[in-house]
Design a binder for these strands. Structure first.
Lengths: 219, 219
DNA sequence: AATATTTTTTAGATTAACCTAAAAATTTAA
DNA sequence: TTAAATTTTTAGGTTAATCTAAAAAATATT
């Protein structure tokens, strides 16, 4: 069945919100993510339900149906493959690729996506460490922790970020934090939960709890 | 000023039609190319004229303004660069890339286009031999002839095609005709103007005048 | 030159995606 | 457990791009 860019974006947003919770997703939550009004969301949810891509009962919130889930994962797959392409092959920085990938993710050609996947060497993660679904929509298991959960005196490796916003990524770049960085946690301050950490064996610096929550690491 | 996919497609079509003639482009000609109705075209032409991208007086046909020309060339540039990318890097055949490039040509990022250009080695032509405008919108001069205009007993080289339709390109592929092929014209039949030609020194075959008109060669 | 034909435009609708304002349902709090 | 606050939906409009049918202009033909 034909699908519009807008419908794809709604499915993607519902998918993203569903990853964080087991509960049904509220109209307002979707509205906020879509940068639109609740009334518009209600219209669209009814339409997506008619097409069989979501389960929606009014006032009860929304969930993706199995078909909707499959569509959403294929968009996520495209987004992340294109992001990696932009960084690896086109020479963009990791904080520059989101908006372009938002456009490229709507290009419709299974053959292209699979060739791109092959061209990139069937990667498991994108430039932000997010897992890339394979052609069957299976997400590789990554099991990373937030840096904010690691104990003092432990060493870990930066594997990904929980947020792709430009400001956040640029901050990390400024701190010399990129994928694969080695992190030695010297101390955690009780007062504000900020972390005193050495990056790639350099002189230790302070990182706020807010930043640490958005950094994903492997011990 | 913001531009929609549809508006881009209209400018592209007007540009293509303008290449073949000096005259103003008729509403019906645009309608045919856009696969829509004349009434819809009239509406759009008025809108494009309001935006300053075309010169249009009702009943008089339409031409691109300098700004419109610039936009159209940037779309052509993107289309052709993406086509080359699809063939060179993704391994598609030249008859498979048109529809995907029709989507990719609307991706908006000057930086991406220029990086893609560089990645491909600042190519002069796309997989069909069509010239690629550079970043300033300048088209390289190619000056090719139609195979149908070449005299008997001459040798030439296949440099491009005047048509990108799948059926045509697949026919050429079947005849072992691809960019760079060496063509020895043995004989031109007066009756139907078909050409008896040897391709890459193989045993000569017949090519219809219709096909020969759409093959571009360099002596 | 008058008429017929073709082309183009206008008028009035339709659809997708959005909006605001008001009504209805649900949730929270007194 | 009723009232207040919040969330969600409905109702009624808007805009972009399309359509059909009819009117107007341009072109071709007798």
């Amino acid at each position: 069945m034909a699908i519009s860019f807008t419908e794809e974006n709604y499915l993607k947003v519902i998918h993203r919100l569903s990853e964080a919770t087991q509960e049904d997703i509220s109209t307002n939550a979707v509205a906020e993510q879509m940068q639109t009004k609740a009334a518009s969301v209600t219209d669209m949810l009814r339409k997506l339900a008619d097409k069989g891509w979501v389960n929606y009962q009014k006032y009860q919130g929304v969930r993706l149906s199995p078909t909707g889930e499959k569509i959403a994962l294929s968009i996520v797959r495209k987004h992340r493959l294109w992001e990696l392409f932009l960084v690896e092959k086109m020479g963009f920085n990791w904080d520059e690729v989101h908006d372009i990938a938002e456009q490229l993710e709507h290009i419709e050609s299974d053959e292209l996506v699979n060739k791109l996947d092959e061209y990139l060497g069937f990667p498991k993660t994108d430039p932000h460490g997010d897992p890339i679904p394979n052609k069957d929509g299976i997400l590789p298991e990554l099991a990373y922790s937030q840096l904010s959960e690691i104990k003092a005196n432990k060493t870990c490796k930066l594997m990904g970020v929980a947020q792709d916003s430009t400001v956040f990524l640029q901050l990390l770049t400024k701190l010399n934090l990129s994928l694969g960085a080695k992190l030695d946690i010297q101390e955690i301050n009780e007062f504000d939960r900020s972390i005193f950490v050495s990056i790639n064996d350099a002189a230790p610096i302070f990182i706020s709890h807010e930043v640490a929550k958005n950094i994903l690491v492997k011990s």
